[in-house]
Amino acid sequence: MAAAHDATPIAAARPAAEGVDPKALHRRIMIGIVVLLALLPLGVYPIFLMKVLCFALFALAFNLLLGFGGLLSFGHAAYFGMAGYVSAYAAKAWGLTPELAIASGTLAATALGLAFGALAIRRQGIYFAMITLALAQMVYFFSLQARFTGGEDGIQGVPRGRLFGLIDLSDDRVLYAVVAVIFTAGMLLIYRVIHSPFGQVLKAIRENEPRAISLGYRVNRYKLAVFVLSATLAGVAGSTKAIVFQLASLTDVHWSMSGEVVLMTLVGGMGTVFGPIVGAFVMIAMESYLAPFGAWVTIIQGCVFVVCVLTFRDGIVGMLGRILRRPL
């Protein structure tokens, strides 16, 4: 425990290149992403794209907490999965329109994030990770036993419904447009938060918590706020996924899902702005290609974890940013 303080933080500060305004570059990349989102469905299967977008938003939300708040939550599946259940239930049993169903799922994730966040921020580092994992496992057991989640079967055949009661979402291309808008809004919100004064304080806490405290910041409030925000956005992703796939199941609350979002962020680049999007795309693409090989998917995921942690800690986008000498 003696060496605890001289260790490099998990997402160390990236030096900005001099004379370049990273925001102008980021703006261009985001415009590029939006153009890409508009063009991709012409050539790629929309269901696959929607899956990538949901997970990309999930990973962005997770990265907000880990990369910028320095908090490793190992239980983000709880917010993602529980939001999915509530959203699916709201759409199926209460007959709510999809936007209201997604809103209810998101609200559930916010409430859960508030409760769990308040508990977890009482400890730091490794304990924080273990606590979030244990609390998420509690949600898993709850989902397994509770009546409304359908236990092992999950909630199947969730109607996609009509957006605002008007637009029929049963067409994949229409739904894709909705998902793309949700994703873009989420991405912009997270970008805005990272570059706000609030985001700067978060980075200060990540780099040196005792100093942030001595400067007079109420560190725990900041931590709780970013935790709840991250859980909420994970909830948006989970709720949307439930509507897209018309299914909410135990897979999404299982600990392996929490591990998966960590992996996506790690592969893409922790603490980068765009890394989680790339990471989500890479991992979902890999899983789709490897799906026929069963248990090998887990083994390969494990190997990717080990290789990334040992040799590739910057991730794809982090590496790219280093080559270009610009924070991406």
Partner: peptide, 16 residues
């Protein structure tokens, strides 16, 4: 490095 990398590495090992 940060101790959390040890957690991530052993998580990967557990999966394998």
């Amino acid at each position: 490095l940060d101790h959390l990398y040890g957690l991530l590495l052993t998580f990967g090992l557990a999966l394998i």
